[in-house]
Amino acid sequence: MHGSARYKVPEGKLVEVRIDYEETIKKIEILGDFFVHPEESIGEIEESLKGSGVGESEESLAEKVRRAVELGGIEMIGVTPEAIAKAVKMAVTL
């Protein structure tokens, strides 16, 4: 199945996710007008969410992103792990 969702981060930018999934997330792309430094690390954030169950909680998904951010020394501006997690949940439930 394919799902997508857009979420405007309060005080931030727009984040969009496009997801291919069955029981779990097979493929995910995160788009938007936010900033991620270094830019290449968006791939690590996407990777951290692959394999997550579609029933997983928003908090659990956010924690995965937070961990990727910490391990990768990534800085996000205009978007947060919580906002990405929220968009993911919207994409798999809409």
Binding site: D33, F34, F35, E39
Partner: peptide
Amino acid sequence: GRFQSMEEEVDVEKCRELGVDYVRRITGGG
């Protein structure tokens, strides 16, 4: 911006018609 979709943000056909270039930046943003 670096993380945007060209197809989603830009009317590429219209750019071609009007001779307007379209490019992805190295930086984020809109």
